[in-house]
Structure formats: C-alpha cells, structure tokens
C-alpha cells in the first residue's frame, strides 16, 4: 500500500487533488481511498488530505500516520507544519516552489523534489495571478517523479473530475509532467 499526504490551504485544491489521484489509480485497477483531514474547512487555513493506493482491498479507516509521499501545495506551510512527521525513511517530499531542494534542511534525510507548479498553473490561467491553483500541475509532476500513477490515467481522471477549466487543468498536468525532472 502507498500512502500520500497532501498539505495545502483552503482553496488550493488539496482535497480535490487527493480525489483525482485516487480516481486515476482506480483506473489503473488499484484499490483506492481518499479523504480530507476530518475537520472544518476554511479558505486560507491549512488543509490536509490523504490518499491510499493499494493492490488489495483497503479497510483501514483512520488518517495516514506514516506516509510514503508528502505533497506540499503551499511552501509557506513549511514554517508551521513538520511535513516530515511520520514520513517513511525512503519517503519522498514534493514541494510546489521555485526554491531549489538543497535549501530545505530535510533534503539531507529525505528525497525532496521541488517544482514550480504555480508557474504552470498561472500560464494556464488556473486560479488568479497572485494565488494560482497548482493542484493538477503538481499531480503531473508527482506522476513523473514517482511513477506511482500514469500520466494518461491522471489526465483522464482530471478530465472527468474537474468541472471548471477542465481543458486547462489537463494541459497543465501534461506540461508539468513534461517539465518535471
């Protein structure tokens, strides 16, 4: 089983990203589960969402404590949240930021990928200029970095699961997938 935690802020699409990833993996025949941190959501406040992907039926009904992957949609959260908490030794952290990975002290302990998903989201007019919605772009990068999900299933899932600016979101995910290194 692979367990993924998304950290974002209300309005950045962390919960939707966790659902899109689950739906995409379901297309690839996986057993999936996606849920938000059980709380009251507000725009701008920290939001946590979880995705489980497994080859066998998932029965666990509790939040993820020891993730394989952590996806950070908003780098300002790193000031207040220890995103490495519970992360498995071989776990990966993927951060939406322009800052190089070596700037993050935890990159010595964990594999860290940084990727400017916000730039791609802005280019495709997702969200506003000051607050781009980079969830689908970051999923495209996740696909490339980890290989846990195929880009075709991911874009199919986005096409079916995102009602607003569907085309733009699909293009952003594809572009992020191409550009991620």
């Amino acid at each position: 089983m692979k367990e993924i935690i998304f950290y974002g802020r209300g309005g950045q699409g962390a919960v939707i990203a966790s659902r899109l990833l689950a739906a995409a993996a379901f297309k690839e025949g996986k057993s999936v589960q996606s849920f938000p941190f059980f709380g009251v959501e507000r725009r701008g406040a920290p939001v946590t969402a979880y995705t489980r992907l497994s080859d066998t039926k998932i029965r666990k009904r509790v939040p993820i404590k020891t993730p394989d992957y952590v996806i950070v949609l908003d780098p300002t959260l790193l000031e207040n949240i220890d995103v490495t908490k519970g992360l498995k030794k071989e776990g990966h952290i993927i951060i939406n930021t322009k800052v190089p990975q070596s700037n993050f002290p935890f990159s010595k302990r964990f594999k860290v990928f940084t990727f400017d998903a916000a730039a791609i989201a802005s280019k495709h007019k997702l969200g506003s200029k000051s607050a781009p919605i980079a969830n689908t772009s970051l999923l495209g990068a996740f696909s490339k970095f980890t290989g846990e999900i195929g880009i075709d299933s991911l874009t199919e899932s986005i096409a079916e699961g995102v009602a607003v600016k569907t085309e733009e979101n699909v293009k952003a995910a594809k572009e992020a997938y191409e550009k991620a290194r």
């Binding site: 689950a22 999936v32 849920f35 938000p36 009904r61």
Partner: peptide
Amino acid sequence: FYHSHTAEP
C-alpha cells in the same frame, strides 16, 4: 468522515 467524506470505489 470515516464514510461521509471518504471517497472510495
């Protein structure tokens, strides 16, 4: 939450 907000197949 365990059901209401959890998406699964």
